[in-house]
């Protein structure tokens, strides 16, 4: 690898309404990488109310915090955000930009890389260092293989999945100096603009915070199955998730989808019911501490992955499990 070491990292967080746990975690991972690379480190915080997030980002290791609270970010977050990031790259001279692999970051990453003429690595799950440049890991072929990638020359953009670069010891606090980006972003009439937001309503904990997740797949055979899984989830104080097949069938909303192209979750306990165990699904729950599979097919691939398995028809196993959980609770 001939390229010069990278010397300035910029990470971008969407911080309207505060720095989420995910934003702090990503800042921390980037700060650690900067420390390991002996690179400078800045954060760009985007969204209304961003000014208040500086202390939290400083604790997570941010030295320099650029903020933009332009109105346009609310109406056209993709396009306006991209403008702001380009500007922040100019101001900081960043040669490595770390974006979140979420609905905004995946929008920005290819367009930013194109504009900067930078090398791009998406869906990054982890990294290491060689000669001052990060070597990125990413899953390919639906998680059936792992590729390592490097941008050997020039600037680099990476979109990182939750947990990428997580290390046990957090980096020391950063200086947390706040600076306004100072770029007015007028709305372009040709930009897609937000006309309505519909937030999912859910009883009980969300998928990202639940300690227990009960997920259903095509094996449930219909939407009623999710009502039975709901009883089990309620007894466990958990949340419901779904496979892509269950979402495509219309039995569960897309926001419940867990997997490579759904949510990545990390509960204490993950119970997969009527889910075959496609790699694309497992990628989303591999961080669960304990995985239980309930499936009528003893040869289902999920039994090569779960810690515990029960072979049987969910129609009898799930109600029995709900009863067994309640019994344990009542004792």
């Amino acid at each position: 690898m001939a390229g010069a070491p990278l010397h300035k990292i910029l990470t971008v967080v969407w911080a309207a309404g505060g720095a989420s746990a995910a934003a702090r975690e990503r800042t921390q991972a980037a700060a650690q990488l900067a420390a390991d690379m002996k690179a400078e480190f800045a954060v760009l915080a985007l969204g209304l109310g961003t000014g208040t997030v500086a202390p939290a980002l400083a604790v997570a290791g941010a030295n320099e915090i650029l903020v933009s609270e332009e109105e346009a970010l609310q109406v056209a977050p993709g396009e306006a955000g991209l403008r702001a990031i380009e500007r922040a790259c100019e101001l900081t001279g960043a040669d490595l930009v770390l974006l979140p692999a979420d609905s905004l970051g995946r929008d920005w990453a290819p367009r930013l890389a194109y504009r900067l003429g930078a090398g791009l690595v998406t869906e990054v799950t982890d990294w290491s260092l060689a000669a001052g440049r990060p070597i990125f890991e990413r899953l390919v072929f639906g998680g059936k293989a792992i590729a390592t990638m490097v941008v050997a020359e020039g600037r680099a953009v990476a979109a990182t999945r939750p947990g990428a670069g997580r290390r046990d010891a957090p980096p020391p606090s950063g200086r947390g100096e706040v600076r306004a980006l100072g770029l007015p972003i007028p709305l372009d009439p040709l930009w897609p603009r937000v006309v309505r937001r519909q937030s999912e309503e859910r009883e009980g904990p969300g998928l990202d915070e639940a300690r227990v997740i009960v997920s259903g797949g095509r094996g449930l055979g219909g939407p009623e199955g999710f009502a039975r899984l709901g009883d089990l989830a309620a007894a466990l104080g958990g949340a419901l998730g779904a496979s892509r097949a269950a979402v495509d069938e219309g039995w569960a909303p897309a926001t419940w989808q867990i997997g490579q192209t759904g949510k990545t979750v990390a509960p204490e306990l993950y119970i997969a019911v009527g889910i075959s165990g496609a790699s694309q699904h497992l990628v989303g729950c591999s961080k669960a501490k304990t995985i239980v599979a309930i499936n009528s097919d003893p040869d289902a691939p999920i039994f090569d992955y779960a810690r515990f398995g029960v072979v049987g028809d969910w129609r009898v196993i799930v109600p029995a499990l709900t009863a067994a959980v309640k019994e344990m609770r009542d004792r």
Binding site: V140, M149, V151, Y305
Partner: peptide
């Protein structure tokens, strides 16, 4: 001229 990402290696995940 644009920079590009290159693949260094491709492997299977460790079996469970």
């Amino acid at each position: 001229a644009e920079a590009r990402a290159e693949m260094l290696s491709l492997r299977l995940p460790a079996p469970r």
